[in-house]
């Protein structure tokens, strides 16, 4: 369970988040929706512990995130969080297999079989030795999804996961996300500006000018 209480964030004079409050239950598939510049990504960064609120608190499973402790926040992302980005963000010098395996290495749970199984799950087993540059956009995003879920995180944060894909590929990615959510019951927080994408979630939080509508 993730709970945000009165989150404020400033960038200089700019008040980006103006007292955000919400609660996401375990295994929920939720979409945070808003236009560009509404503060969605800032909120996602705070939820993942990469940024910190100037005011307010985030609770994960009842524990308050300690933003001042970098080691704990790194461990939090390492163990409990999976990330999916709009531009995939796979490491360009690593093969797909190696990219997917990173979270297992970080959690000291490296298991070749698990990497292969996950690649089968996202339909990329035949591309395991390819570099990201040799994959299509959709394939790269599937790879990113595999990397996000391989270590069985409690929650996956997906920032515009279909934003750089054509509608058909985007839909297949969303289908994959949905089916994975159904199978693994992982909490998914999807950030998007697209109404059609948001519809795939169970609940939608609308954000506009730093406040939840």
């Amino acid at each position: 369970m993730i709970e945000a209480i009165n989150i404020h964030k400033y960038y200089g004079n700019q008040h980006v988040l103006k007292g955000i409050n919400f609660r996401i239950n375990r295994s929920q598939f939720i979409a945070i929706m808003g236009r560009s510049g509404s503060g969605k990504t800032t909120l996602l960064n705070i939820l993942s512990g990469l940024d910190w609120p100037d005011e307010g608190s985030i609770y994960v499973n009842g524990n308050r995130l300690n933003f001042t402790n970098d080691t704990k926040m790194t461990e939090y992302r390492q163990k409990k969080v999976g990330f999916i980005f709009q531009f995939f963000n796979l490491l360009d010098n690593l093969t797909l297999f190696d990219n997917v395996a990173i979270p297992l290495y970080l959690n000291k749970k490296y298991d070749t079989k698990k990497v292969l199984d996950t690649l089968v799950r996202v339909g990329l087993i035949n591309h395991k030795d390819k570099l990201p540059a040799q994959l299509s956009g959709g394939e790269r995003q599937r790879g990113a999804i595999a990397r996000a879920l391989i270590h069985n995180p409690e929650m996956i944060f997906a920032d515009e996961p279909t934003g750089s894909l054509d509608s058909e590929t985007g839909e297949s990615i969303l289908k994959l996300l949905k089916s994975l959510h159904t199978e693994s019951k992982t909490t998914i927080v999807l950030v998007t500006h697209d109404n059609l994408v948001a519809k795939w979630a169970e609940n939608i939080i609308h954000i506009s000018d730093g406040v939840i509508e």
Partner: peptide, 16 residues
């Protein structure tokens, strides 16, 4: 720096 940022997002510590 881009790759370093990705690693930070997915939970890789600075020391690593």
């Amino acid at each position: 720096s881009h790759n370093i940022s990705i690693l930070r997002y997915i939970g890789c510590s600075y020391n690593k």
